[in-house]
Protein backbone atom coordinates (compact mmCIF):
# COMPACT_ATOMS: atom_id res chain seq x y z
CA UNK A 1 0.00 0.00 0.00
CA UNK A 2 2.76 2.39 0.93
CA UNK A 3 4.57 1.59 -2.31
CA UNK A 4 1.49 2.34 -4.38
CA UNK A 5 1.23 5.61 -2.57
CA UNK A 6 4.84 6.59 -3.27
CA UNK A 7 4.62 5.61 -6.93
CA UNK A 8 1.50 7.60 -7.59
CA UNK A 9 1.80 10.72 -5.49
CA UNK A 10 5.24 10.98 -4.01
CA UNK A 11 7.06 11.54 -7.27
CA UNK A 12 6.50 15.10 -8.31
CA UNK A 13 8.67 17.73 -6.60
CA UNK A 14 7.26 21.19 -7.27
CA UNK A 15 9.74 23.87 -8.24
CA UNK A 16 10.35 26.78 -10.54
CA UNK A 17 13.55 25.76 -12.31
CA UNK A 18 14.30 25.94 -16.02
CA UNK A 19 13.36 22.25 -16.31
CA UNK A 20 10.14 22.64 -14.32
CA UNK A 21 9.02 25.47 -16.58
CA UNK A 22 9.47 23.53 -19.82
CA UNK A 23 6.37 22.35 -21.65
CA UNK A 24 5.51 18.79 -20.62
CA UNK A 25 5.57 17.78 -24.28
CA UNK A 26 9.20 18.89 -24.53
CA UNK A 27 10.02 16.73 -21.55
CA UNK A 28 8.08 13.72 -22.79
CA UNK A 29 9.66 13.91 -26.26
CA UNK A 30 13.12 14.37 -24.76
CA UNK A 31 12.60 11.29 -22.61
CA UNK A 32 11.68 9.28 -25.70
CA UNK A 33 14.79 10.56 -27.46
CA UNK A 34 16.84 9.52 -24.42
CA UNK A 35 15.41 6.00 -24.47
CA UNK A 36 16.18 5.58 -28.17
CA UNK A 37 19.63 7.04 -27.74
CA UNK A 38 20.47 4.64 -24.93
CA UNK A 39 19.69 1.72 -27.20
CA UNK A 40 21.77 3.11 -30.04
CA UNK A 41 24.87 4.00 -28.07
CA UNK A 42 27.30 1.11 -27.72
CA UNK A 43 30.42 2.37 -25.96
CA UNK A 44 31.45 3.71 -22.58
CA UNK A 45 32.40 7.09 -24.06
CA UNK A 46 28.85 7.44 -25.35
CA UNK A 47 27.36 6.46 -21.99
CA UNK A 48 29.72 8.90 -20.32
CA UNK A 49 28.45 11.71 -22.53
CA UNK A 50 24.82 10.80 -21.88
CA UNK A 51 25.53 10.66 -18.16
CA UNK A 52 27.07 14.11 -18.42
CA UNK A 53 23.97 15.38 -20.23
CA UNK A 54 21.64 13.93 -17.59
CA UNK A 55 23.83 15.36 -14.84
CA UNK A 56 23.42 18.81 -16.39
CA UNK A 57 19.65 18.41 -16.46
CA UNK A 58 19.57 17.26 -12.82
CA UNK A 59 21.71 20.25 -11.91
CA UNK A 60 19.44 22.66 -13.80
CA UNK A 61 16.32 21.22 -12.16
CA UNK A 62 17.55 22.14 -8.66
CA UNK A 63 16.22 18.83 -7.37
CA UNK A 64 18.38 17.43 -4.54
CA UNK A 65 20.34 14.37 -5.64
CA UNK A 66 18.86 12.17 -2.93
CA UNK A 67 15.38 12.53 -4.45
CA UNK A 68 16.74 11.52 -7.83
CA UNK A 69 18.48 8.47 -6.38
CA UNK A 70 15.44 7.52 -4.32
CA UNK A 71 13.78 6.47 -7.56
CA UNK A 72 16.64 4.05 -8.26
CA UNK A 73 16.39 2.15 -5.00
CA UNK A 74 13.29 0.02 -5.72
CA UNK A 75 14.85 -1.03 -9.04
CA UNK A 76 18.21 -1.96 -7.51
CA UNK A 77 17.28 -5.67 -7.55
CA UNK A 78 16.71 -5.64 -11.29
CA UNK A 79 19.97 -3.77 -11.76
CA UNK A 80 21.98 -6.32 -9.78
CA UNK A 81 20.15 -9.17 -11.49
CA UNK A 82 21.00 -7.79 -14.97
CA UNK A 83 24.63 -7.34 -14.02
CA UNK A 84 24.95 -10.87 -12.61
CA UNK A 85 23.15 -12.46 -15.51
CA UNK A 86 25.49 -10.93 -18.05
CA UNK A 87 28.53 -11.50 -15.88
CA UNK A 88 28.04 -15.26 -15.74
CA UNK A 89 26.21 -16.05 -18.96
CA UNK A 90 28.48 -14.53 -21.57
CA UNK A 91 31.10 -16.68 -23.32
CA UNK A 92 34.61 -15.37 -23.83
CA UNK A 93 37.98 -15.01 -22.13
CA UNK A 94 37.68 -16.40 -18.66
CA UNK A 95 38.81 -14.28 -15.70
CA UNK A 96 38.11 -16.92 -13.11
CA UNK A 97 35.84 -19.88 -12.64
CA UNK A 98 33.94 -21.28 -9.64
CA UNK A 99 32.72 -24.81 -10.38
CA UNK A 100 30.62 -24.36 -13.53
CA UNK A 101 30.18 -20.58 -13.22
CA UNK A 102 32.56 -18.77 -15.53
CA UNK A 103 33.22 -15.06 -15.24
CA UNK A 104 34.48 -13.61 -18.52
CA UNK A 105 35.92 -10.27 -19.61
CA UNK A 106 33.18 -9.98 -22.19
CA UNK A 107 30.56 -10.72 -19.58
CA UNK A 108 31.98 -8.13 -17.22
CA UNK A 109 31.94 -5.47 -19.91
CA UNK A 110 28.48 -6.43 -21.16
CA UNK A 111 27.10 -6.48 -17.63
CA UNK A 112 28.55 -3.11 -16.79
CA UNK A 113 27.22 -1.66 -20.05
CA UNK A 114 23.73 -3.03 -19.48
CA UNK A 115 23.75 -1.84 -15.88
CA UNK A 116 24.84 1.63 -16.88
CA UNK A 117 22.25 1.76 -19.60
CA UNK A 118 19.49 0.80 -17.17
CA UNK A 119 20.69 3.23 -14.54
CA UNK A 120 20.78 6.13 -17.00
CA UNK A 121 17.35 5.17 -18.27
CA UNK A 122 15.84 5.26 -14.79
CA UNK A 123 17.46 8.50 -13.75
CA UNK A 124 16.75 10.18 -17.08
CA UNK A 125 13.07 9.31 -17.19
CA UNK A 126 12.54 10.00 -13.50
CA UNK A 127 13.57 13.59 -14.27
CA UNK A 128 10.35 13.78 -16.28
CA UNK A 129 8.11 12.66 -13.43
CA UNK A 130 10.04 14.60 -10.81
CA UNK A 131 9.68 17.95 -12.55
CA UNK A 132 6.21 17.53 -14.08
CA UNK A 133 2.94 17.40 -12.13
CA UNK A 134 0.63 14.48 -12.96
CA UNK A 135 -1.86 16.99 -14.34
CA UNK A 136 0.71 18.49 -16.74
CA UNK A 137 1.82 15.04 -17.70
CA UNK A 138 -1.71 13.98 -18.66
CA UNK A 139 -2.19 17.25 -20.55
CA UNK A 140 1.06 16.65 -22.40
CA UNK A 141 0.20 13.07 -23.31
CA UNK A 142 -3.26 14.14 -24.45
CA UNK A 143 -1.95 16.85 -26.76
CA UNK A 144 0.78 14.61 -28.16
CA UNK A 145 -1.71 11.83 -28.89
CA UNK A 146 -4.29 14.16 -30.40
CA UNK A 147 -3.09 13.67 -34.01
CA UNK A 148 -3.53 9.93 -33.40
CA UNK A 149 -7.28 10.42 -33.09
CA UNK A 150 -7.70 9.82 -36.81
CA UNK A 151 -6.36 6.30 -36.43
CA UNK A 152 -8.57 5.71 -33.41
CA UNK A 153 -6.42 6.61 -30.44
CA UNK A 154 -8.84 8.02 -27.80
CA UNK A 155 -6.47 10.72 -26.55
CA UNK A 156 -8.93 12.68 -24.44
CA UNK A 157 -10.54 9.63 -22.89
CA UNK A 158 -7.15 8.21 -21.89
CA UNK A 159 -6.18 11.49 -20.27
CA UNK A 160 -9.50 11.72 -18.43
CA UNK A 161 -9.08 8.17 -17.13
CA UNK A 162 -5.60 8.97 -15.86
CA UNK A 163 -6.86 12.10 -14.11
CA UNK A 164 -9.72 10.31 -12.39
CA UNK A 165 -7.46 7.44 -11.35
CA UNK A 166 -4.99 9.89 -9.82
CA UNK A 167 -7.80 11.75 -8.08
CA UNK A 168 -9.33 8.63 -6.53
CA UNK A 169 -6.32 6.52 -5.56
CA UNK A 170 -5.88 8.28 -2.19
CA UNK A 171 -9.63 8.00 -1.53
CA UNK A 172 -9.67 4.29 -2.28
CA UNK A 173 -6.59 3.65 -0.15
CA UNK A 174 -8.26 5.35 2.79
CA UNK A 175 -11.37 3.33 2.20
CA UNK A 176 -9.44 0.06 2.09
CA UNK A 177 -7.95 0.85 5.46
CA UNK A 178 -11.37 1.68 6.90
CA UNK A 179 -12.99 -1.53 5.67
CA UNK A 180 -10.07 -3.63 6.90
CA UNK A 181 -10.43 -2.15 10.35
CA UNK A 182 -14.17 -2.69 10.42
CA UNK A 183 -13.79 -6.36 9.45
CA UNK A 184 -10.94 -6.84 11.91
CA UNK A 185 -13.24 -5.49 14.60
CA UNK A 186 -15.53 -8.40 13.69
CA UNK A 187 -12.76 -10.91 14.14
CA UNK A 188 -11.44 -11.05 10.57
CA UNK A 189 -7.81 -12.00 10.18
CA UNK A 190 -5.95 -10.84 7.10
CA UNK A 191 -2.52 -12.07 8.14
CA UNK A 192 -2.44 -15.70 9.15
CA UNK A 193 -3.37 -18.93 7.37
CA UNK A 194 -2.34 -20.55 4.12
CA UNK A 195 -2.70 -19.09 0.66
CA UNK A 196 -6.30 -20.24 0.12
CA UNK A 197 -7.26 -19.14 3.60
CA UNK A 198 -5.79 -15.72 2.99
CA UNK A 199 -7.36 -15.37 -0.43
CA UNK A 200 -10.69 -16.22 1.15
CA UNK A 201 -10.22 -13.64 3.87
CA UNK A 202 -9.86 -10.98 1.17
CA UNK A 203 -13.47 -11.37 0.03
CA UNK A 204 -14.96 -9.29 2.87
CA UNK A 205 -12.44 -6.61 1.90
CA UNK A 206 -12.70 -6.69 -1.87
CA UNK A 207 -16.48 -6.96 -2.25
CA UNK A 208 -17.31 -3.73 -0.42
CA UNK A 209 -14.34 -2.02 -2.02
CA UNK A 210 -15.67 -2.79 -5.49
CA UNK A 211 -19.28 -2.05 -4.59
CA UNK A 212 -18.23 1.34 -3.22
CA UNK A 213 -16.03 2.07 -6.22
CA UNK A 214 -18.97 1.45 -8.55
CA UNK A 215 -21.17 3.67 -6.39
CA UNK A 216 -18.57 6.40 -6.57
CA UNK A 217 -18.26 5.99 -10.32
CA UNK A 218 -22.03 6.39 -10.64
CA UNK A 219 -22.06 9.52 -8.50
CA UNK A 220 -19.10 10.96 -10.34
CA UNK A 221 -20.65 10.32 -13.75
CA UNK A 222 -23.80 12.20 -12.72
CA UNK A 223 -21.79 15.04 -11.23
CA UNK A 224 -19.69 15.33 -14.40
CA UNK A 225 -22.77 15.35 -16.59
CA UNK A 226 -24.38 18.01 -14.41
CA UNK A 227 -21.29 20.13 -14.94
CA UNK A 228 -21.71 19.97 -18.67
CA UNK A 229 -19.21 17.23 -19.51
CA UNK A 230 -19.80 15.56 -22.86
CA UNK A 231 -16.43 14.26 -23.99
CA UNK A 232 -13.39 16.07 -25.34
CA UNK A 233 -15.17 17.80 -28.21
CA UNK A 234 -15.13 21.60 -27.94
CA UNK A 235 -13.40 21.54 -24.55
CA UNK A 236 -10.94 24.24 -23.58
CA UNK A 237 -8.27 24.15 -20.90
CA UNK A 238 -7.54 26.12 -17.76
CA UNK A 239 -4.01 26.50 -19.10
CA UNK A 240 -3.34 25.81 -22.74
CA UNK A 241 0.06 24.24 -23.20
CA UNK A 242 2.34 26.71 -24.89
CA UNK A 243 5.40 25.71 -26.82
CA UNK A 244 7.82 28.53 -26.12
CA UNK A 245 11.22 29.55 -27.46
CA UNK A 246 12.90 27.83 -24.53
CA UNK A 247 11.10 24.61 -25.51
CA UNK A 248 12.29 24.87 -29.12
CA UNK A 249 15.82 25.44 -27.90
CA UNK A 250 15.71 22.63 -25.38
CA UNK A 251 14.28 20.17 -27.86
CA UNK A 252 16.73 21.28 -30.56
CA UNK A 253 19.63 20.83 -28.17
CA UNK A 254 18.47 17.37 -27.08
CA UNK A 255 18.02 16.25 -30.70
CA UNK A 256 21.41 17.62 -31.81
CA UNK A 257 23.10 16.04 -28.81
CA UNK A 258 21.39 12.71 -29.50
CA UNK A 259 22.35 12.79 -33.18
CA UNK A 260 26.01 13.53 -32.48
CA UNK A 261 26.36 11.01 -29.65
CA UNK A 262 24.31 8.40 -31.48
CA UNK A 263 26.24 8.76 -34.73
CA UNK A 264 29.79 8.85 -33.38
CA UNK A 265 29.77 6.73 -30.22
Amino acid sequence: MRMLRSVTIGQHIPGDSLIHRLDPRTKILSSIVLIVLLFVVKGFIGYGLVALGIALVVRASNIPLRFVLRGVRPLMVILVFTLTLHLFMTDGRIIFQIWFLKVTWEGLIRGLMMGTRLLLLIIGTSMLTLTTSPMQLTDGIETLLRPGKKIGIPAHELAMMMTIALRFIPTLLEETEKIMKAQMARGADFQSGGITQRAKSLIPLLVPLFVNAFRRADDLAIAMEARGYRGGEGRTKLRELKFQRSDMMALGFVLAFALVVGAFF
Partner: peptide, 17 residues
Protein backbone atom coordinates in the same frame (compact mmCIF):
# COMPACT_ATOMS: atom_id res chain seq x y z
CA UNK B 1 -11.28 -8.69 23.05
CA UNK B 2 -12.93 -7.70 19.79
CA UNK B 3 -15.80 -10.07 20.49
CA UNK B 4 -16.39 -8.29 23.76
CA UNK B 5 -15.94 -4.74 22.51
CA UNK B 6 -18.09 -4.43 19.43
CA UNK B 7 -17.39 -1.49 17.17
CA UNK B 8 -19.70 0.08 14.60
CA UNK B 9 -17.80 2.37 12.28
CA UNK B 10 -19.16 5.35 10.34
CA UNK B 11 -21.39 4.42 7.42
CA UNK B 12 -21.18 0.72 8.36
CA UNK B 13 -23.36 -0.19 5.36
CA UNK B 14 -20.34 0.57 3.18
CA UNK B 15 -18.63 -2.46 4.68
CA UNK B 16 -21.28 -5.04 3.79
CA UNK B 17 -19.94 -7.91 1.71
Amino acid sequence: IRQKVGMVFQYPEHQLF
